[in-house]
Computed example of a mutant assay.
Amino acid sequence: MKTTIYDIAKAAGVSIATVSKVINGTGRISTDTRERINEIMQELDYQPSVVASALTGKSTFTIGLLIPDLANPLYAEIARSVEDRGRELGFNLVMCSTDNNPRREGDYITFLKQKKVDGIIISTGISNEAGLKSLNLQRIPVAFVTRDIPTLEADSVRVDDFAGGYRAASHLIGLGHRHIAVVTEDMNLQASRERVRGCRFALEEAGIEGGGNTVIESVSSVEEGKRHALELLTSEHSPTAIFACNDLLAIGAVQAAKELRLTIPWDLSIVGFDNTLLAGIVDPPLTTVSQPIAQMGRQVMDLIIQEVRGQKHGKQRIVLTPELIVRQSTTFPRKV
């Protein structure tokens, strides 16, 4: 027989109203009481009716997450952090991979609305403006993580991409590099533009003429990073360093260098961006710009749930400071 709210109240020795407040995240309930009720709900396998909650206009305790590609460690780590924080707060996660395809984005937005999710977190380079406007019109809370659309009234948590690009280039310049190439994701993405802009600013500040003009746009994958790095490294004016605007592209550059029998970092220095799990286990370990991934996931979930619960007014745009993690993929240039 299916466990009911009455069973939970009887087992916990509290009123039905108290159990209801714990389920809905409302009212003032002591931490001990809330934890005891949650434990009993788990023991008795209590499953609140999401459909009934949605039909009565109540919370479904579900948040949607749009990411470009779960195979990218950055988004896998973001998703894990968001999910973990959601579970702490009593919310489930519905995750959708969009491949940054506007049609898929639109389809998934429609799907999430049909599922009556309480809010949607977006970590894609979303370009489906019609879909976003429909969320605004229906007053479905939206928050961005690792991304932001300045023209949209929405919460966001991201890193300072300009500062990250600037620090990556400054590190290479400080080692003596003057021929630095950049491999980046789609320049239509604000994060890509800002990372490249920060890199170019550092080069111009150092008086390096034409520095950073070799900018290659790429699909975000190891394979494409390798292909573009091979093109750069077999060109007439091959760089002494490559700044790859994410770790997947950087690892592709590592593979290209090894295929050409170049020694990293002596023949080629490589800097990535994100500091995903892969950055520390690739050979050699990757110098990279670190995003505080776990912190970003927790903060964006906090923001959207606060809005779902009506606990905040106005939007917050949180910009975190990146950190350069120096490992064994960079050193001074052997060739000048």
Rank of each mutant, 00 (worst) to 15 (best):
T184M: 09
T214E: 12
G176W: 07
P239G: 09
T26V: 06
L249P: 12
E307N: 08
A206N: 11
E259Y: 02
R261T: 07
V19W: 05
A206F: 10
W266N: 14
L248D: 09
F111K: 03
P265A: 06
T330H: 07
N136T: 06
A191W: 00
T124S: 08
G13K: 02
L303Q: 15
D274V: 09
E77R: 09
S127I: 03
I109A: 12
C199F: 03
A12Q: 03
F332G: 11
F144K: 10
V289N: 09
N24L: 05
Y166E: 05
Q291V: 13
R309W: 05
A244W: 08
K315Y: 01
N213E: 11
V14L: 05
R200N: 06
T321R: 05
Q328V: 01
M95R: 10
V271G: 10
G164P: 07
I216P: 06
V219K: 12
T110Q: 13
R139N: 15
V254R: 01
F332P: 02
E323I: 00
R103V: 12
I318W: 03
N128C: 09
D186P: 00
K133F: 08
I121R: 04
T124Y: 06
Y46F: 11
V117W: 03
V22G: 07
L135R: 11
A17Y: 01
L324H: 04
V14Y: 02
L262N: 01
T214F: 15
T18V: 13
H237M: 13
Q190W: 00
P239Y: 15
G272L: 10
F273K: 08
L249E: 11
A257S: 02
S290C: 11
L320A: 00
D45R: 11
A17Q: 03
L277T: 12
T276P: 10
S97L: 09
I67T: 11
G27E: 08
A250Y: 00
E231Q: 14
G64T: 01
A12N: 02
H228F: 15
S218D: 04
V308T: 14
I149P: 12
G310A: 08
A163C: 08
I304K: 09
V336I: 06
V282M: 07
L303P: 06
A17P: 00
L203Q: 00
S192C: 04
I264S: 00
L278F: 07
N38I: 11
Y75K: 00
E217P: 09
